[in-house]
């Protein structure tokens, strides 16, 4: 698989470490009254879809950026690659 890095261009997926479902960007609020239940879901439950999957890839053997890759789990075709930073900002996780 080739991942089209937004800054570096096409890179071999072997340079990256796979870090799982991109919903992990949304860490629950530890002060919420049901924080324990929310963290159990966050830590252990996954959608695991057959089809489009948004997922985190860490460019460990490269510039060490985190990416959000949209990939079809039934074909491995990658349709979108973004910096995780941009996604997190857009979704209100950081400034």
């Amino acid at each position: 698989m080739l991942i089209n890095h937004p800054l570096l261009g096409p890179r071999d997926a072997a340079e990256f470490t796979y870090m799982g479902d991109a919903s992990l960007i949304h860490r629950p609020d530890w002060q919420a009254s049901d924080a324990a239940a929310q963290f159990a879901d966050y830590g252990y439950l996954r959608d695991n879809p057959a089809g489009l999957h948004r997922e985190l890839w860490f460019h460990e053997g490269g510039d060490r950026s985190w990416l959000v890759v949209t990939r079809d789990t039934t074909t491995h075709e990658i349709t979108q690659v973004e910096l995780a930073r941009d996604v997190a900002r857009r979704e209100g996780r950081s400034t």
Binding site: G20, D21, D41, L45, R46, D47, N48, P49, A50, T73
Partner: peptide, 16 residues
């Protein structure tokens, strides 16, 4: 597993 149990509204501690 995830594909089948999803039909019962369940999310599993599993990745394929």
């Amino acid at each position: 597993s995830s594909r089948v149990m999803e039909k019962a509204g369940m999310r599993l501690p599993i990745e394929s």
